[in-house]
Design a protein around this nucleic acid. Structure first.
Length: 784
DNA sequence: GGTTGGAAACTTTTT
DNA sequence: GTTTCCAACC
C-alpha cells in the first residue's frame, strides 16, 4: 500500500508502527480517523486477519464511519473487524459469558430514568427521605465508584463515620442486589462486570486476548479507570495497543474520564512509541490561532502546536446581541443569507451551545423563518413515555425477572391492578423468592389479593403467549412482534380512542419505533450476511439501549444541526456558530467558582467547539438573558476575551468599550469594565455571576434593552409554530400523490405530509401493510 | 383507585 | 418559564 500517497510523514509513521504500544497524540482536525483507518488497512495488508482486529470508538456513528472507510480501502473482508463502542463491546461479551458472573444472557439494560425509578423505590424501602438525600446524589456516588472500579464492599471500608456516606454505602449494596435480582445492568455495570468477568475467569479473558491481537482505542482521553482496566487486560498479552487522543479535547471528566490515562500512557507502557499529529487539515489559520490562544491558558497539558496551510481565512466573528431572541434571529438570518447567496448549504452549518436549554429560542427562530434544521440530543426519542412503555413490554417478554419493567406496564393501559395489589404481589414474591412476574403468574396463591388475581393472571398469560410465539419462531420479523405487543396489550387501542392530541403523536412515535425496528433488521442482515436468522428481540433491545442521538444524524439530509458542544465532538462544519458566549453560561456558573480544574475542562470544551469550524466561526453572546425564569446580565465569556484582537472582529467595542479598540488582554478588558462603573446594583432582580457583588450598571447596553419587559411574550409556543410551518425538509424528493417504496412495508402512495418537531412526517397508504405515518428522516422512502 | 391542583425543582455536559 | 411530583379529594 502506498501510504505516502494518502498520509503525511507523521500519519504514515503511525500507520506503519504496527507492533507494540503506540500513543497517537492527534490534535483537532489532524486526520486522526484517516490515520487509524489506514493503519487498520495496513495491518490487513500485512496479513493480519481482520478477525483479530479490535477498534473501540466513542459513538456508534464513529464506529460506522470507521467500518465503512476501512471497507472502502481494503474493499472486502472488513466486516469481521470488531468495531464498536465500549458499551456495545461489553454487551456482546456479557451476552455470551454473563452466566459466569451470575447473569442470564437476556439481561436488561437500565437507562438513567430506570435507575432513578429503582433508586426511588429502594429509598422508600430503606426509609430514606429523598428530599434530604436525593436519588440522583446517591446514584452519582455509585456511578463514580463504578468508574473507579470500587465495589460496594470496598466502599464500605472507605467511608468514615459520616452518616450520609454510610447511608449511601448501604444503598450501593441495596442497588446492586436489586439490579442482580432483576437481571439488569446499568451503563457502568456493563464495563465493571466485563472487567470482573475477565479477572475472575482467565479462560474467558484468554479467549478475547487470542481474538484481539491488535487493539485500537479512539478518544482515549475520555476513558475512565474501568475502561482503562478493560483495555489493559485485553492488551496484556500481545501488547499491540494503539490509542489515539488529544488531552486538549478531554471533556468528560464529570463522567469519570481520567485524563491521566492519556497523560501517563508512557509510564504504563514504557516501550510505547509516541507520535504527534500537529498538522491541521480542517480549519483556516485565524480559527486555529484563536483556538490555540485560548487553550494555551490551560496548565498541565501536553505541549503541542497545531498548524495549517489552509490560508488565513476569515477572522472569528463576534456578535453581542440584546437577548436570546435577537441572538437566535441573528444566527438564523446569517445562515439564511449564506444559503441564499449559495455560499453554503444548510448541512454545512451547525449551531453549538453549552446547555440543551438554549436550543429553544434557536428552534423558534428556525421555525419562524422556515429553515430546515435538526436538534441533536435534548429529549431523547427513547425517553418518551410511550416508547419506554413499549420497550418495557418487550423487556418483560425478554427478561421475566425485571420487576421494574413489570411494574411500569402492569396497569398501562388500565387493567384495574392498583398499587395496593402490586404491593401484595410484591411481598408475596419477596417471601417466596420469586420475581414479581412469576408471582403474578400464580396470582391465585397471593394472600388477600381478591379479584385482582384474575386480572394479574390475564396479564401474565398475555405475556407468556407473546413469549411463546417468539420462542417458537412464529414470528419472522421484529416489526410484527412490536405490532402484536401493542395490539394485544391494548396499548394502541387506548391511544386510538383518546381525544387528546398528544395521544395522536404518541401513535406516530410508536409507528416510528416500528420503522426503526424494520431499519434495524435490514442493517442486521447487511452486517451479518452469513446469519440465517434475523436479529433476536434481545439484539434489538441492546441496540436501542445503546444508541445516542448523534448516531441518528445522517449526511443525506440538508439541514442545520443544533446541538451541545459535547455532542459535536468529532464532527466538523464549514460554518459554526456558538451561542451564549457569556460568563455564567459558558463557562458555566457551577464551574467558575468550583476551581481551576473545572474551569480548564470548560476551556477545553471551548477549544473543541472552536475547532469544529472549517471556514467560518461565529461567536455570539447576549447582554440580557432569561435563565430559569430569571433575568441575568453577564459579561462576555472569558473564552472570547482570551482570543487576541488580531484574530477576531465584531461589535464588542461599540457596546462594551466605546472609548478604545477591542481589548487586547484580560487586564485591559477588566480596566475598561471598571471604568464603566462598578456602581450600585439595581435591587437584585437581576442575577449575575458576581453574586452579591456590585455589578456594572452601564454594562447593560442602554439601547433596545428593557430587562423589565418580557421579550418573549408575543412568541407563540413551539407546538403552534410547528403546526403552522410549511414542509421544508430537503432531501425529500417525493410529495403527496407520489408512489414510494419502503424497505419493509413495500409500495404505496403518499397521502399526506406534515412538519412536526423539526421533522417531516409522511403518511403512506401501503398496498400490503395499510396506512402508516412515518418519519421522512428515518423511513428512507424511495420515489418510484 | 383515579383525578386534580399546587408546590418544588430544574439547567451542565452523556455512553 | 416549564415540567414533575405528591397530597388531598372525589
Amino acid at each position: 500500500m502506498q501510504l505516502e500517497k494518502y498520509l503525511n510523514p507523521e500519519q504514515q509513521h503511525a500507520a506503519e508502527t504496527l507492533n507494540g504500544p503506540v500513543l497517537i497524540l492527534a490534535g483537532a482536525g489532524s486526520g486522526k480517523t484517516r490515520t487509524l483507518t489506514y493503519r487498520i488497512a495496513n495491518l490487513i495488508e500485512h496479513g493480519v486477519n481482520p478477525w483479530n482486529i479490535l477498534a473501540i470508538t466513542f459513538t456508534n456513528k464513529a464506529a460506522g464511519e470507521m467500518r465503512s472507510r476501512v471497507d472502502d480501502i481494503v474493499g472486502y473482508d472488513a466486516g469481521s473487524i470488531w468495531v464498536a463502542t465500549f458499551h456495545a463491546t461489553c454487551v456482546r461479551i456479557l451476552r455470551r459469558f454473563g452466566d459466569r458472573i451470575g447473569y442470564d444472557n437476556s439481561f436488561s439494560i437500565y437507562d438513567a430514568d430506570d435507575q432513578k425509578t429503582l433508586m426511588r423505590n429502594l429509598c422508600k424501602e430503606h426509609g430514606i427521605d429523598t428530599k434530604k438525600l436525593k436519588e440522583k446524589t446517591i446514584l452519582n456516588v455509585i456511578s463514580s465508584n463504578k468508574d473507579e472500579l470500587i465495589s460496594p464492599e470496598e466502599y464500605d471500608r472507605m467511608v468514615g463515620s459520616d452518616p450520609v456516606e454510610k447511608k449511601i454505602a448501604e444503598m450501593y449494596h441495596a442497588y446492586q442486589d436489586a439490579m442482580k435480582k432483576s437481571n439488569a445492568m446499568d451503563f457502568d455495570d456493563l464495563i465493571v462486570n466485563t472487567v470482573k468477568l475477565f479477572k475472575n475467569f482467565p479462560d474467558v479473558l484468554q479467549t478475547y486476548q487470542n481474538r484481539f491481537v491488535y487493539i485500537h482505542v479512539d478518544e482515549y482521553q475520555d476513558t475512565n479507570t474501568a475502561q482503562f482496566e478493560l483495555v489493559r487486560l485485553l492488551a496484556e498479552r500481545n501488547r499491540n495497543l494503539c490509542v489515539v487522543g488529544d488531552d486538549d479535547q478531554s471533556i468528560y471528566k464529570f463522567r469519570g474520564a481520567n485524563i491521566h490515562n492519556i497523560l501517563d500512557f508512557e509510564k504504563n507502557y514504557p516501550e510505547a512509541e509516541v507520535i504527534k499529529l500537529e498538522q491541521n487539515y480542517r480549519s483556516t489559520q485565524n480559527i486555529l490561532d484563536a483556538a490555540n490562544a485560548v487553550i494555551a491558558n490551560n496548565k498541565g497539558r501536553k505541549e503541542k502546536s497545531l498548524w495549517t496551510n489552509q490560508g488565513e481565512g476569515h477572522k472569528v466573528h463576534f456578535r453581542l446581541l440584546s437577548n436570546q431572541k435577537e441572538e437566535a434571529e441573528y444566527i438564523a438570518q446569517d445562515i439564511s443569507r449564506l444559503v441564499r447567496h449559495h455560499e453554503a448549504r444548510f448541512k454545512d452549518c451547525a449551531i453549538l451551545y453549552r446547555t440543551n436549554a438554549q436550543s429553544r429560542e434557536l428552534e423558534e427562530s428556525f421555525l419562524m423563518d422556515n429553515l430546515s434544521y435538526q436538534i441533536v440530543g435534548g429529549v431523547n426519542f427513547y425517553s418518551r413515555k410511550e416508547i419506554k412503555d413499549c420497550l418495557a413490554y418487550l423487556k418483560t417478554i425478554a427478561n421475566g425477572q425485571d420487576d421494574l419493567m413489570v411494574k411500569r406496564i402492569i396497569n398501562v393501559p388500565k387493567r384495574g391492578i392498583g398499587p395496593t395489589s402490586v404491593e401484595k404481589a410484591q411481598s408475596y414474591a419477596a417471601n417466596n423468592d420469586l420475581s414479581l412476574f412469576d408471582a403474578m403468574a400464580h396470582a391465585e396463591r397471593i394472600p388477600g389479593i381478591g379479584k385482582a388475581a384474575d386480572k394479574m393472571l390475564a396479564f401474565a398469560e398475555m405475556i407468556e403467549r407473546l413469549r411463546a410465539r417468539i420462542a417458537d419462531d412464529f414470528y419472522d420479523d421484529l416489526p410484527e412482534i412490536l405490532n402484536d405487543v401493542l395490539e394485544e396489550s391494548g396499548y394502541l387501542e387506548d391511544l386510538r380512542v383518546s381525544d387528546d392530541d398528544e395521544d395522536k403523536d404518541r401513535i406516530n412515535n410508536l409507528d416510528e419505533l416500528i420503522t426503526k425496528a424494520a431499519v434495524y433488521e435490514e442493517k442486521f442482515a447487511a452486517e451479518n450476511p452469513e446469519s440465517e436468522t434475523g436479529p433476536t428481540l434481545s439484539d434489538f433491545l441492546n441496540e436501542v439501549s445503546l444508541v445516542a442521538d448523534i448516531d441518528n444524524v445522517s449526511e443525506d439530509q440538508d439541514r442545520v444541526l443544533l446541538m451541545t458542544i459535547h455532542a459535536a465532538k468529532g464532527l466538523e462544519f464549514k460554518h459554526v456558530y456558538i451561542a451564549g458566549m457569556e460568563e455564567g453560561l459558558f463557562p458555566n456558573d457551577n464551574v467558575i467558582f468550583a476551581g481551576d480544574d473545572e474551569l480548564e475542562e470548560e476551556r477545553r470544551l471551548a477549544y473543541v467547539g472552536f475547532t469544529r469550524a472549517k471556514e467560518e466561526l461565529t461567536l455570539t453572546a447576549t447582554a440580557y438573558r432569561m435563565m430559569r425564569g430569571q433575568g441575568t446580565c453577564n459579561p462576555v465569556s472569558q473564552f472570547v476575551r482570551e482570543i487576541p484582537k488580531k484574530y477576531i472582529e465584531g461589535n464588542l467595542p461599540q457596546l462594551y468599550n466605546p472609548d478604545s479598540a477591542f481589548s487586547d488582554t484580560e487586564s485591559d478588558y477588566n480596566r475598561s469594565w471598571n471604568r464603566r462603573g462598578m456602581a450600585d446594583s439595581d435591587g437584585g432582580e437581576i442575577r449575575s455571576v458576581y453574586g452579591n457583588r456590585p455589578r456594572p450598571k452601564a454594562a447593560r447596553p442602554n439601547k433596545d434593552i428593557d430587562p423589565d419587559q418580557k421579550p418573549f411574550a408575543a412568541v407563540k409556543s413551539i407546538a403552534d409554530l410547528k403546526k403552522g410551518s410549511a414542509i421544508s425538509e430537503a432531501g425529500v424528493d417525493y410529495g403527496v400523490g407520489d408512489r414510494v417504496r419502503h424497505i419493509k412495508f413495500g409500495e404505496g402512495v403518499v397521502t399526506e405530509m406534515e412538519q412536526r418537531e423539526g421533522s417531516t412526517y409522511v403518511t403512506v397508504e401501503f398496498e400490503k401493510s395499510g396506512r402508516r405515518v412515518l418519519s421522512a428522516a428515518f423511513a428512507r422512502l424511495t420515489k418510484l
